[in-house]
Design a protein around this nucleic acid. Sequence first.
DNA 1: CTGAAAGCGCTTACAG
DNA 2: CTGAAAGCGCTTACAG
Lengths: 320, 320
Amino acid sequence: VARLAGVHASTVSRFFSHPAVISARTAARIESAVTELGYAPNLVARSLASSKGRLVALLVPDLAYSNFNEAIEEITSGLANADMNVMLCLTGSSPERTEQLIAAAMRWRVDAVIAWTPIPPGGAKLLRASGTSVLQISDVSSDPVDLGIGFNEFEAGRALARFVGERGYVRPYLVATMGPYSARRREGFVKEWRRLNGSKATEQRIDPPANFQQGRRIFADIRRLKRRPDVVVCASDYLAQAIIVEAGASGLRVPDDLAVIGFGNTPMAGDMRPTITTVDLHTKRIPAEVLSVLDARGRGETLPRQHIDLGFDIIARESA
Amino acid sequence: VARLAGVHASTVSRFFSHPAVISARTAARIESAVTELGYAPNLVARSLASSKGRLVALLVPDLAYSNFNEAIEEITSGLANADMNVMLCLTGSSPERTEQLIAAAMRWRVDAVIAWTPIPPGGAKLLRASGTSVLQISDVSSDPVDLGIGFNEFEAGRALARFVGERGYVRPYLVATMGPYSARRREGFVKEWRRLNGSKATEQRIDPPANFQQGRRIFADIRRLKRRPDVVVCASDYLAQAIIVEAGASGLRVPDDLAVIGFGNTPMAGDMRPTITTVDLHTKRIPAEVLSVLDARGRGETLPRQHIDLGFDIIARESA
DNA sequence: CTGAAAGCGCTTACAG
DNA sequence: CTGAAAGCGCTTACAG
């Protein structure tokens, strides 16, 4: 490889890693040799030798009905553009599996892990021991292993309660998924609702994922209630979509007979009939933040352990 | 590490890779040392030394509205269970990006690449040069780089045309995405329809992804037609879902005024109102096939270059 | 600016 | 069954 260019292997290595150092003449010679041989450095060896693998682990609970696939896509594409590869780790919301996957990521010596799912204590320990950059997309109230980014679930819950009240609804039905983050949102909603109205919000807890399928069951539950709620506050846009569909099938008008609020502001929400009132989580900002953090760390800057608040917005549309 | 157990490093290595060879006594000693130190072998080094990285590249066009996220999930989980990690490569249906990602995967010396997206000639060349196992999920009529798996798009199109005819529809509206695979399906539909009815099917080509958003526009196009079709044959269940929603919003009954057929048999299809008639592609079988192939290759078996036909089924439900 | 050497942390024939 | 040695393909101080 280096022989063809008539230089030492270390010079070829520099050609790739520190091109600025190389003289124009040798660079040209190496260049032509490289193209002639179709050579591309072995990244496994590079990673081992330099401990900079440009590999990032992405931990997500699932792909199938995620509110966040678009953000995941953008993160992945952004990383690819920055010449980094991503290891896909599907946790299925299982702490054991999450820990296993973190262990595997550590063994691959990933440069960073991006987690859109809770990190169990065992996983946090592994992460801390390794000193890897960790970016957790999570509630601001959570205590991040390293860097956190996300919105304030509790405040989102409160804001939803206020919104529901301002719109004149009096019997909200709250659908929350189990899990640490949405638990805070639920809490915010319930507390604020009580504070404002002195009454309890009806609620239902479901297991993730908050997908279309679950909506049908939830609607059936709602129908069975002696007193129908006037608004359903959902844990995802897919749930909201399904409830709207079910409502339509049973002759209820949305929002007149039953209002519906989603969560996540997926593009579908704006195209549904009626369009879905929902909460935008500013996830579009995540990829850029992730990349800037990784970049800063890559340059050796020391970022403090902190949480970046992305904020959120309630998007009022037709469904509520 | 090995010192604590009082053995040579190579013995520790064997403890992990060939445990059967180790005596019970030393195995126990190593075991305790390993747990005490919390040691786990560096996979980068293992990969470099053994050229068996247990790393697989997964090439998919997108995540956001894929018909196939569930299958992707299953493949990924299946691989994780088999102690393999996956590199996520999002091609965005771009040949250039696909080629770049394949190049990166080769540089990571992945054991296999699973591609649910067309492989451009440049990528195929890289793949062939490296001798990596390639599993393409694609039309059976395509010429796989190595191993192919999937159904026959052309026959699926023909079957749909027959189904539509048998159900008594006379003015089908075919929505096909651009792209090599669905082009074959389109062709099958158009040819079979002409053969049976002597008439041309109305059609519309769209760019991927065939997501909910596009459905609204398509429905608007359909409304503008002087003569309304009696059935819309969609490129995905999401498209079908959106068209059903739009139809409902404009007072058309499905299937009486307008029938709709999806593609892919996502779980949502069975829960929609009305439930969506669609095509099941037997993608559930893919993970097992992928794993068995990888396993066979891992054991050194030589599998011939071939295409596995998964077949398909039209699932008749309420929407058509 | 470039070469020679050591090293990254494993695996794997080869002896014993 | 285990040890000693070489090697996987790079990078990176260290000289020059």
